[in-house]
Amino acid sequence: MTVSPSSSARLADAGFGLIEIAVSMFLLALLAVAFLPFLVQGVRQSSANGTLATGTQLVNKEMENARAQTTCTGLTASTFTVLDPRGVTLQVARTVGGACPAAALSYPITVPVAVTVTRTDTGAVLASAKSLIFVAVK
Rank of each mutant, 00 (worst) to 15 (best):
L52A: 14
A34P: 12
K61Q: 13
A29M: 08
G42P: 10
Q57G: 15
G55A: 07
L28N: 08
Q41H: 11
I19A: 10
Q41F: 10
N65Y: 09
N49C: 09
R44Y: 05
L27Q: 06
G50E: 15
Q69A: 14
M63Y: 01
M25N: 05
A22Y: 01
V43I: 09
G42Y: 02
A53Q: 08
S47K: 01
R67W: 11
Q57V: 04
P37E: 09
A22K: 01
V33D: 10
A34C: 11
T73A: 14
L27A: 10
L75G: 07
L28T: 15
T71W: 00
S24M: 13
A29P: 13
L58G: 07
V40A: 06
V59A: 05
I19Y: 00
V40Q: 05
A32E: 10
L52S: 12
A22C: 02
N65Q: 11
T70D: 11
T71Q: 05
M63W: 03
F38S: 11
G74L: 04
P37Y: 08
T70E: 07
T71C: 03
S78G: 12
L28F: 03
V59G: 06
Q57A: 14
V40D: 09
I19R: 01
Q57Y: 09
K61L: 13
A68Q: 07
L31M: 12
